[in-house]
Design a protein around this nucleic acid. Structure first.
Lengths: 220, 220
DNA sequence: TACAAAAGTCACCGAACGGTGACATAATGA
DNA sequence: TCATTATGTCACCGTTCGGTGACTTTTGTA
């Protein structure tokens, strides 16, 4: 049985962690700063969560840092349309949504930067969610791809399908998501990278367009 | 006029900064830790460099964090051979060398992680060197590409050249280098990303191979 | 209502941080 | 030789850090 007062305090602390993280960056996250932000004594972090790591874990489990499947695949109707397109277009379109989703999530970007530096309860949880989400999407797309392949097999170009089989889609998505993360993280502090403007939508549009060109070129 | 004793002390401090950075990460870099590592009083950091930022700047200017042009393009003879190949192959081969060069440089990876978090004298200097190096290479390759294009124009497929003109090579190299950096940075602490093994050369070989496949597919 | 447990407050600890002033010593130039 | 400057050592400042013990207040319940 948890008293409502305690639940309220815990909620304050968890929220405060997110606020400190978003406003001051992970290097300023500590028992003192979080407790101060929550307007609560820091001793409660130890009593309720066993320390900052426990609080971090609670934060990791409650918040939604990652784009949802819906956000990436669209509504059921949109996904239907998406599946009708060539496989390369599907990947390209999903990454287009992925880029805009990631760029919006300032808090997630902060945690991803944290991830680059150390492993803790929060970054591990983020890793888990991301890996699971990635596998989910890959599974969905692979199923869709098989349908497409079997359809095309009945009609024409039998060699094309064997070519597509050989493509290392996992490596492709790894490359693209890694690039997306890096550029989104860097874009928080710098304006240009490799002489490309990362501060505007236009610059990012070039990135997305190039992803599409690269993928669609592969299958041919 | 700088006394040899002072020069020696400055050298100690600059080296110590690099050692602390490599051994303990940037979050542990401070006047106390660096001075301790150098076996020198921290007050000398303020007196000789005006503070940690000045020392950082000195460190940034003296060390070589970045792969040299030779390292990426190879010797003169190798570069000659490289230029004979199709443009896509050139890019692919350079990125292959880039990946292995970056992966070796632990200190550079540490600074790149630092770059993801904040801007200071060191990260700004690293940025400058990288941007300059990137432009250098792009210029060299563009010149090589023009020669290739003009040669091909005389022989066959005139449309192909216009297609290649339309390719956003800057965005391509941005994508690939960003992905390389992100994966190399993450590989310091995690074993797999997107279910790909980043701890072995084989995993990285898949990345490099996929880069090559993506690029060579573009031109066709 | 009485009482024990939970919730919350407060003061304090040792350690490390960035930063500074005072001092002793060695090297330099007039 | 003597005064000046540069070099290096040391002690100390205030602040913040993570962490803990002792205390008061509130709450639920027997």
């Amino acid at each position: 049985m948890v008293s409502p007062k305690r639940a309220e305090t815990e909620r304050k602390l968890v929220n405060a962690l997110g606020e400190v993280l978003a406003e001051q960056g992970f290097s300023n996250v500590g028992v003192n700063s979080v407790a101060r932000k929550a307007g609560v004594d820091k001793v409660l972090i130890y009593r309720y969560f066993g320390g900052l790591d426990g609080l971090t874990k609670a934060f990791a489990e409650c918040a939604e840092f990652w784009p949802s499947l819906d956000e990436l695949l669209g509504s059921a109707a949109e996904f239907e349309q998406l599946q009708a397109k060539p496989f390369a277009d599907q990947i390209a379109e999903i990454f287009e949504r992925y880029v805009s989703s990631i760029r919006k999530r300032q808090l997630t970007l902060e945690i991803m930067a944290w991830e680059s530096v150390e492993r803790n309860a929060l970054t591990i949880e983020l890793e888990n969610v991301r890996e699971a989400r990635a596998i989910e999407i890959q599974t969905i797309l692979r199923d869709a791809a098989k349908q497409n392949n079997s359809q095309e097999e009945k009609t024409n170009r039998p060699e094309s399908t064997t070519d597509e089989q050989a493509i290392d889609w996992q490596a492709v998505t790894t490359l693209f998501s890694a690039a997306t993360h890096y550029l989104a993280i860097r874009a928080r502090h710098i304006k240009t990278y490799n002489a490309m403007d990362l501060s505007t939508d236009d610059g990012w549009a070039r990135i997305v367009r190039t992803m599409k060109v690269l993928i669609t070129g592969m299958g041919e």
